[in-house]
């Protein structure tokens, strides 16, 4: 049975952006405040799950044509590479570094290589969660 829930769909269209923004905020807040890649990934996944609940699988796939499986793999590769990069500079595996730069709009900003590692975690968590949820919901046999 196909039904259209106007309230849910309209609310979703607004809420998804708020949740996404919050998840990105959480991802970057992780260095100095509670947050980080893991919880950021989960919040983004919850936004996508809300989309899946409000709309059907196929139309969500049309607007977000990611292969979540490969997204997770790419996340692991990014995390592993940030560790491996330290091999090139002849410092111990997984060494981190950070620097301060002056960006327009943001002013003095701390850029840390740990954020790239966190980005990998974020992608992995998002990819894994979405792979689990979509593969369970697709299984109709």
């Amino acid at each position: 049975m196909k039904f259209t829930d106007v309230f849910l769909q309209t609310a979703t269209k607004t809420l998804v952006f708020i949740i996404m923004t919050f998840s990105i905020y959480i991802l970057f807040a992780g260095h100095h405040n509670p947050g980080g890649g893991f919880i950021g990934g989960l919040i983004t996944a919850s936004a996508l799950v809300l989309l899946y609940i409000a709309f059907d699988l196929q139309s969500v796939r049309d607007i977000i044509p990611f292969n979540f499986n490969k997204l997770a793999a790419a996340g692991v590769i990014i995390s592993v590479l940030t560790g491996t990069a330290s091999l090139l500079f002849n410092v111990p595996f997984l060494s981190q570094t950070f620097t301060y730069v002056y960006l327009p709009l943001l002013g003095k900003t701390e850029l840390a290589s740990a954020v790239i590692f966190d980005l990998g975690v974020y992608m992995t968590v998002l990819g894994t969660t979405m792979t689990i949820i979509t593969s369970i919901s697709e299984d109709e046999k």
Partner: peptide, 19 residues
């Protein structure tokens, strides 16, 4: 850094193979 390679090589290979 050699010491981590036995872990790193299979880990990296495993992830590459997913693609």
């Amino acid at each position: 850094n050699m010491v981590v390679l036995p872990l790193l090589i299979p880990l990296f290979t495993a992830v590459m193979l997913i693609f």
